[in-house]
Design a binder for these strands. Sequence first.
RNA 1: GGCGGUUUGCCCGAGUGGCCAAAGGGAGCAGACUGUAAAUCUGCCGGCUAUGCCUACGUUGGUUCGAACCCAACAGCCGCCA
Length: 412
Amino acid sequence: MIESLPASLRDAYEVLAAGAADILPRDGLAERLLAAHREDRPLRVKLGIDPSGTDLTLGHAVVLRKLRQFQDFGHLAILVVGGFTGQVGDPSGKTATRSAQSAEQVAANAQGYLDQVMQILDPDSAEVLNNADWLGSMSLAEMLDYTRLVTVAQLLERDDFSRRFVSKSPISLSEFFYPLLQAIDSVEVRADIELGGTDQTFNNLLGRELQRSRGQAPQAVLTVPLLVGTDGVEKMGKSLGNYVAISEPAAEQFGKLMSIPDTVVEQYALLAAALHPQQVKELAAEVAAGGPTANRAKRRLAREIVSLYHGAKAAAEAEEQFNAVFQRGELDVQAAEFAWDLSGSVHLPALLAAAGLAESSSAARRFIDAGAVRIDGVAQPAKSYDLDGAALEGRLVSVGKRKVARLTNGGS
RNA sequence: GGCGGUUUGCCCGAGUGGCCAAAGGGAGCAGACUGUAAAUCUGCCGGCUAUGCCUACGUUGGUUCGAACCCAACAGCCGCCA
């Protein structure tokens, strides 16, 4: 199948298949690409989204980047907002019943969420639909008709359900409906392909069944893997503090990306950047070479990713700032200002805590004693907690290499 | 419903009446080295303008000059029985 693709589709296939955790059925993607080519129409590529209030991270962005690639090859992104399913709560990967969101909450979250999503997608070839529009008005008879296509045994095969079943923790009937509802979406939007994380595999495959029953060509399913966090071990997530948010300043992103372990550079290049699979291979080889070559490769990766969200110019500036601060050991001259009463004697631990450079004044003392606190780059001696305020005005105070503030006189 | 066990800091886990802000490990943070990578070494890892004070060992109450440690009740978790 893949071999039989015309040359013009080969490259598209290579790019679109790159980084996928799974493509089901195996030749489904190639088959759909061929069909679109034959019929001279764009593919309808579905992605279900559950707007949450949070900032998008590079982890969330993986599947969106994949969708963007489809757009770049002329296909149509179909975003299905879970206005209805959000009220049910996705049981995927959960070990307990998930708290459902009200329709109002979903709507409130949707706008800010979509704004972020559209930084990655091309809004001109994206359709945003809300599944409340068809699920909300569906008759019970119609619904029951769909339920005939799924058996309980099938549902129980999913490991999140089976684990809960075995351990006798409750599974509400509404949760059983979730995969079905999501599958009905595929019928409604006539999806050619559905994207999702690996945890969505079951739901997405169910879409095929329902489509077939309604006389549609079953969608191909393409799942993407989870992105590992900047620590290189755990999955990227807010609670672990190992994430890079797409809305973060360029310099922050650059720095965080430079700190990822070598072992995950290839993964990031594949999943978080917009590089051709060929370029990813080159990058991986450079990292494996070690030394300065590896460093250059990682820089390139960081530049590529930062450029996606802030543009090439900002990425170059971020790298320059990185060089200044971490390579030449200069202080970040663009440090935020912090106003504090500098008349008379100043208690440094209290100042550091108030400026957010330390979590508490006790922690600030520890930093001072450890030699991590510098004033204009000069390490503060241990146990020296009280300083003359007049000598601090306009100075740069730093804790470690990342936390810096410029002091100004003010405050109460 | 009955009996037994268990509950310690971000996580794991020692401690069973004063020497306990609580061993050890992991994670994390800082310093040295470096490619803000890895590996390695060192220090820190409850709060407080601080040679002391305060809060903390599931919750509440009690015994005691003194409780993470003993007692009681309650709650959570685990096991056995019904």
